[in-house]
Design a protein around this nucleic acid. Sequence first.
DNA 1: ATAAATATTTAAGACTTTTTTAAGACTTCA
DNA 2: TGAAGTCTTAAAAAAGTCTTAAATATTTAT
Lengths: 224, 224
Amino acid sequence: MKTILVAEDDTFINEMLCELLTQNGYTPTSAFSGTEALLHLRQGGFDMMILDLMLPGKTGEEVLQEVRATSDMPIIVLTAMADKETTVKLLRLGADDYLVKPFDNDELLARTSVQLRRTALAADNSTLKFKDIILDLEGYDACIGCVKVGLSKREFEILKHMMSYPNKVFSKNNLYESVWGDEFMGDDNIINVHISKLRAKLAALAPGVEYIKTVWGIGFKMGG
Amino acid sequence: MKTILVAEDDTFINEMLCELLTQNGYTPTSAFSGTEALLHLRQGGFDMMILDLMLPGKTGEEVLQEVRATSDMPIIVLTAMADKETTVKLLRLGADDYLVKPFDNDELLARTSVQLRRTALAADNSTLKFKDIILDLEGYDACIGCVKVGLSKREFEILKHMMSYPNKVFSKNNLYESVWGDEFMGDDNIINVHISKLRAKLAALAPGVEYIKTVWGIGFKMGG
DNA sequence: ATAAATATTTAAGACTTTTTTAAGACTTCA
DNA sequence: TGAAGTCTTAAAAAAGTCTTAAATATTTAT
């Protein structure tokens, strides 16, 4: 179930919003000031925020900026002003959408579901998938057909890095720096060895399937 | 570079949109009917679509539904009607956002960049195009009609260099120094051999199509 | 029309990069 | 501290790409 933070200082509107959201299957949390909203957000766990611009404590714009510094969550801004300057500025600051008060309930719900749709797709943020590999980011391992592969730390991190951008070719340089967090010294065979072992482990569970492709002279990528 | 399909039957508005997008660093493609838009989309490679509702051939709503059957690309709908019924329905059908005509250019740009922001990470669609060749700069390969060509490193780099300036004629000297990063020794046949192999690989997927033209005594260029 | 210059193709071997293996160093956990 | 597993290094084997060279084809200039 999707949780939504409702940052709106007008008690009546806030309650009304929460009720509307509840009726439509969401789980809202109320915040009545900018600072309260930030407190809630620090607890984490929200899928979206509805943010009024005129908030005591911190204004909506300030909240918007602070949230955007660390989070990519969908934010719909409520504003009393419909003028172009404001709205363009809001979008540039990182709002995903806005509604002008007084807004229509159905439109709010429609825009909410549009925003949540995109998170729903990327949603499963605890796993990555490629072909039949499911990478369990929390369990630090991968499954093929529900059987654990048994990855070591480096193997897991290499696979995670590559599965994050499955169309991209990763140079050894890039992989080394991402996984080891250290400068790559060129004449090193270490990536090759890890890739080899990774392939061996994957092949043990799915013989004949190619998951990691060699791009000669460039590096490796997911594919087959 | 982001590519945007502009589906709008009003020639004036379409041109204006394309010009606006070009000026702001996007690469627009025009479609003047619903059916034309779908044809373009089948070619693939678009990062976003701006879709007018009133289109000949197929209406915007029909296009919207067809696209959503297979794609998650951002779609901003243009509509003359501002009524709630219409807009809510559009969002439910899968539009990511809409603008009411006459719209403001800055707002269009702001909303465009909001939509592209979410694809930005995954799809930093670094591709080059020439005719039906799509060069995938991150994947280090080219596609013709969605079929991978399977380029070697040097072939890829030669093609990349030439496709970066599709109107320019490249001397062997120039190509050698750009791709090999080394001084050209004149009596060298190596460029010719690579061009030959490149042509052979392209021709295997698109028989009879000329992609790389020989400019006698000078060098090579994209064209045909 | 012919010669000269330039381009194309082919095939083989040189060369580079990748893969695999194995042994020892290192880490982690109890 | 000892055992188990993981990581790194090194080196040989394998695989793929690049280059060379030579033969063939095409275009340009005379």
